[in-house]
Structures are given as structure tokens and as C-alpha cells.
Amino acid sequence: MWGQAEVTKFAEKHRLGEGARADLKKMFDSFVTKSRRRVTVRVPATTANMGPGFDCAGMALDVWNELTVERASSFSMEIEGEGAQKLPRDKSNLVVKGVEAAYKYIEQEVPTLRYYTLNRIPFAKGMGSSSAAIVSGILAGLALAGFNLQVKNEEELLQIATNLEGHPDNVAPCIYGGFQLGIHNGSRWWTDRVTMPHGLMCVVFCPDHATETSEARLLLKEQIAMQDAIFNCGRVAVLVAAFATGNMEWLRHGTEDALHQEQRAPIHPHLKPLIRAALDAGAHGACLSGAGPAVIAFTSGRCGDVTAQKASEREEFNVAEALIAAADEIGCPGHVLITKPVEHGGYIVSETKVLDPENRRSRIHYVQD
């Protein structure tokens, strides 16, 4: 298990800011050796694939679900927020599956529990709601049992979560935060972080309709052409280079894809018009978020850190309005979330503080911690 020295070394290696360092320390400090009666867990939304990085690339976003789990005399589940009308309130819920996976891993019986979830991550839109449920359940289960996981050279939490989810593109950034590249190295799941530039903003158009990931996967080909494989190899390299160097202009090509977006276009007729609208409005790049139907565009200011610039120098509102206009033109109702990447992933908290920023336009919402 990591100690303070390992946390400091990790933070220095990845040049984390003071806020991210504090959150990282809080996350690891929260794992105590005593079992708990009640725990609250916070986990971020994620965007997966990021264009060409199918099933291996993903990034954490500053939109958070909260889960409270408490020992009780009888099972119950209360759900508020996104997906509250559709999510099951029994043991088939992925949060419960996550808790069960944690207890199975440590070879303990699952106690009787009461669950309360407050969901802010859009449900079934391609923003990692299922991974958030799985990771939050695992974190809560481990905390309740007072069990510490091996991190260095093992990434045990990643193994549990990815074995449930099937691929690491969402669960890795949900656990560790930032931009993560995840693979299976032949013996276990492995992931590492890609440096993110300051001032990056994410503009996400969320259609009102939902998409099942399993349905979207049925459209994919089992075999691909050599030219498509070469295309995606190059685009993934450009994607990573754009983030690592801060050259956001490269994202126009770095978010292009030949493996899944074109194949999924029949169930996402809004995809191509919205990508085109985002790029025309000044976005650096745009792509399908996960399996969709959400479309994500990446923006920044004219120079430097976007948070220090005047609104007139920033691109996210122009891109947001362009996405809404393009969606309205083709009859695709929805709304836009403007958010940013986050360097840290899921963690255990004793209290939750949420700021609800004032909406500046009726269908554009800022989402922030």
C-alpha cells in the first residue's frame, strides 16, 4: 500500500498541482485498517476512446457521482439524479456488483447494506456512468471492510474493476484520474497517465436519447483493413503527442478514427454534423464520447490557461452554441455540459461539497467541483 512518500513521488513525477496532490493524499489516507459502518465515495465521469484510442484511452471529467453505503438490518437502495427512473434498485445494480466484487476479492461475506446514490453523470450517454457505478461500489466495499489494496506493480483495484467492465478505457481514469492509456500486458491490466495541458476544456453535447454500449458494439467489425489499422495507429500517436506537448492544434487529426465512429454513425446520425460544427466553431478536436450518443469537443483559450482569460478569448461557449445549433437543425434534442478534465479519480470523503454555478445560457451548464 502506498504511503506519504509514494504519494509525493507520484505527484512530482506527473507534475500534479497542489489541489490534485491534496485530493490524492485524501484518497489514500481514507483507506484505514478498521472496518467502517458508513462510507461516502465520490467518482468522476469519464470519456473513453477519445477518437482513435478504442477500448484503451480515456480521461476523467469534472462531473461526479456520489455513493453512500451503510451497514443496515435490511437491503435498500435509493437513487437520485441521472438515471433514477431507469436504474434497478436491487442487487443487479452495478454499484452492488462492485461492492460484491470487492468482498469476493478479499474473501469476505457481503454484509447487509443500505445504498444511496446521487448521480450527476449523464446516464447511458457515453460518459462512463457504468464504470463510475462499478468503481464506486468497489471503493465503498473495500473501505467498509477496512481492506488495503496493493498499488505499486499490482494495481489490484484496476484488476477488479476492469474484470467487471471488460476494458480499461473508462475504469482507469475513473480510478486514477487524468488521461490514461490502458492495456493488458499478457498477465494483468496495466495503465499509465498521459500529461494534460493546462486550460483544456471539454464541451459535451448530450442528446436526450440514450445508447446501450452492447448495442453499439454489435455494429463493429471483427476484422479490419490494414489501412484502417495504420490510420488509427498514427492518430493515437498524434493524440498522445498533442496532450504531452500541449500542441492542441494536432487534436483535429488526433481525434480522427477509422475503427468505430464510422461504424456507429448509423445509430448516431448527429455525430458527423456535430463534429463538423464543433471544428468550424474553433474546437481543437471532437469525437464520439465512448459508445455515444454524447459528442465531446476539446477547446482552450487563445493562449495560456483558460481560467485566467476573458470570456471573449475563450472558445467553449462558441463551440457549445454551435453544437446546439447543429443539433437543432437535424432534430436532435439535447443539452451541453461544459466541464474540464480532472487529475484525480475516485476517492472516499467524509463530507461532500458541491457548487452549483449559475447557468449563463438556458441550455448550457457549467459543471465544476
Rank of each mutant, 00 (worst) to 15 (best):
R36I: 06
S73D: 15
E66R: 13
Q108E: 14
I134V: 13
G58D: 06
V99T: 05
P111D: 07
M127D: 00
P111A: 08
A45D: 02
W64C: 06
V110K: 10
V69L: 02
A133Q: 07
A60F: 03
P88I: 07
R71M: 10
L61E: 01
V95Q: 02
R89I: 06
S92L: 09
T40P: 12
V99W: 02
E100G: 05
M77C: 06
E80V: 12
Y103R: 08
W64Y: 15
V135M: 08
F123K: 04
E70F: 07
Q108K: 15
I106P: 01
V43Y: 04
G81W: 07
M50H: 11
G126M: 07
A133M: 10
E100N: 04
L61I: 12
R42G: 05
Y115C: 04
V99S: 03
Y103A: 12
G98F: 00
Q85L: 14
K34N: 10
I79F: 03
T33Q: 11
R114A: 11
I106R: 13
V135D: 07
K86D: 14
T46V: 01
G126N: 01
S129H: 06
G146V: 02
E66T: 14
E82A: 12
R120H: 10
Y105W: 14
N65V: 01
Q150L: 15
L94R: 02
I134T: 09
R114Y: 02
N93D: 05
M127G: 03
T33D: 11
T112N: 08
T47I: 11
